[in-house]
Design a protein around this nucleic acid. Structure first.
Lengths: 208, 208, 208, 208
DNA sequence: GATGAATGAGGGTTCATTCAT
DNA sequence: GATGAATGAACCCTCATTCAT
């Protein structure tokens, strides 16, 4: 029936509306300083309405982060899949990450602050989810690097450490950008990041 | 008078005691899930007593972070000062940072989660302090790098970006280490970090 | 017109359906722990539909109790009317009461818990109704007893007290039976109740 | 130390104060129509203070009932213990019960309404407690009766049924009295109850 | 007439802070 | 100076009721 379909569409629209407003407020004030009433108000619904879409404040928060993470990591993986060759793939990965940050600054502001937050009462589910996403992202990068080694484009290296370093650099540039609120796009740092990742600052260090 | 001196010493001792217990609990449960009563209990004082050492819960938290940051950045700078030569100085910097993490895991757990947290109602002072500390740390690293250029040990490079990258790598390895709870010391990553910072993963990228 | 008649019949059917489901849930969970949504759900109607049959939750509850009371007291009076002679009439009264309890355990479970419940905000109508029903039942029993005296079957006694005592015994056996959930019918207590009511435990007490 | 003792005494005083105010309000408006704020207000404390004495609204209620039951049943048993002879003991029991009602009308108003109320979320503890108290009271009366049989003061009878009947009569007179708010003391019904319990209304019923 | 999503007042509970002892 | 009981503002969540479809 058509009616149900429209219902479902409207439901989804409202849900998104709430999530988006929640994202803005959570980003500005943090989880604990944001009240459900505020979110309701800002999104033009009554308090009770929020509870028809989400089981509670924490669930709303968790859902927002969860869906954001799916979008982010999904986008990164898709971008990498479409490329061949080690450098191109890494570049795609970094570019996708930076683009996501640019297009979801509020979400990423939140992300930068939650890492380990001991939120959840029942089964630290969000924390676990985030840690596991973080780790699988590292592993994903490791694989990209390993493929590069297998394909002969790269010498044998410590894949894990390299992945960790790359993630760290991306995060660091992200934070720098979020904090400075520069008008110039974050993606312009792509070349710099690639260069530093591939070559470092360009100086040989005597092995100990 | 001697009495006053002993008073002052005792005062300091108690203060430290409280701070240290607060640190442990804040690290375990986060700012908002920690109650003043808990801290009082854990440190063996009455709730009211806490308020004779700190103006309030937030002040206690802020103080704890503040003094930790002083210790951390101070240590790093001291370590760097005692070295000559670019590589040695960078190495000292990274080593000091990693050592601090190892010896203050709880404090660093907190640090990883606070970055931007919109704590303070009045004056966002902590956030400002942390941002400014973060920035001055970046600038400090920039200077070390600049010195390296000046001294001819290094080609002209984007000092800011390099500093940001180095910080990012250090943070990333720190998070990795805090999360995995490996028994092996974090400092063992020093070589890896130095290598990646100086040379990257070891592959030339054609400049675009 | 026939249509209207069918309408009315259907209306009544739905109404009864709702009342019956409500009775079950109210009995199980009490007035305040039962939600209108639950009743709607259980009876297969939408929440809004409930409000076309009853003015509100309290009205639904009140109606249910009211109609149950009518049924109960009506049945008792009818049963008494059909008998002649004091003992036969009292026996009919007790039997009718016990039978009603057996056939309406859920309703009676509720009844046992409401006696004085300060439900209604405006007008304590239900409470008043129940008290008045209770009192008129007592008066009814008084009359049966008075008739017994008039007819010479009984010595002059305190009719009121006797009626109160009889009601108390019936209630007490009812509660006992509801609580123990014995398979044997409550009506089997009829003989015991009659015996105790007429003769007590069978021991003379010197009048003081 | 003396200080602690005074503390404890004051604690107990306040606790009793709250319980007593709560009792009055609960009796007047029922559990669900009474707010914690009201109780706090009425007893002259802040809301939060209530929570230093009781874990929550339900706990406050439960505690009040529990302690009242202890007082009631304890008093009844003590009264019975001090008597010898079947009739004297039953009389003591009934008198104690009626006196308690007179001196605790508010508490007993509540009692009359709670019997089976499906209050408790976690483990129907209050209901269980009350049922078990009720049953052990019945068993206690059974024993008093059995003793009467053993001592040859009474013929062999259905002790359980007799106990149930006595309780029922007591309750019924209690309700009657509570409802009518007669100025004359409930204890005056003692003779009537004893008479009805021992001899019934004074008419032989042919055994079927 | 039937529906069920939206509403928002209301209540239980927590906890940072104060202040009399 | 130390204590910890008292305070009460603030917040999350529920659910009876309404009304547009």
């Amino acid at each position: 029936m058509e009616k149900n379909e429209r219902r479902a569409r409207e439901f989804h629209l409202r849900r998104k509306e709430i999530l988006s407003h929640a994202e803005r407020i959570f980003a500005a004030k943090g989880f604990y300083n944001t009240t459900v009433a505020e979110i309701a108000n800002s999104s033009g619904f009554a308090v009770g309405t929020i509870y028809q879409f989400f089981e509670g404040k924490e669930h709303l928060y968790t859902t927002m982060i969860s869906e954001g993470l799916d979008l982010m990591y999904g986008g990164i993986r898709d971008a990498v899949k479409q490329e061949k060759g080690f450098v191109a793939r890494i570049e795609a990965l970094v570019r996708a990450h930076l683009s996501f940050v640019e297009n979801h600054t509020e979400f990423c502001s939140i992300l930068m602050n939650v890492k380990n937050n001991a939120l959840s009462s029942e089964g630290t589910s969000l924390r676990d989810r985030m840690v596991s996403d973080y780790l699988s992202n590292i592993r994903f990068i490791e694989e990209v690097i390993s493929d590069g080694v297998t394909d002969g484009e790269l010498m044998r290296i410590d894949e894990r450490a390299s992945a960790v370093a790359l993630i760290g650099m991306i995060h660091s540039f992200t934070i720098e950008w979020l904090m400075s609120r520069t008008p110039e796009p974050l993606v312009e740092k792509l070349g710099t990041i690639m260069d530093l990742f591939l070559n470092g600052i360009g100086m040989k260090l005597k092995r100990r």
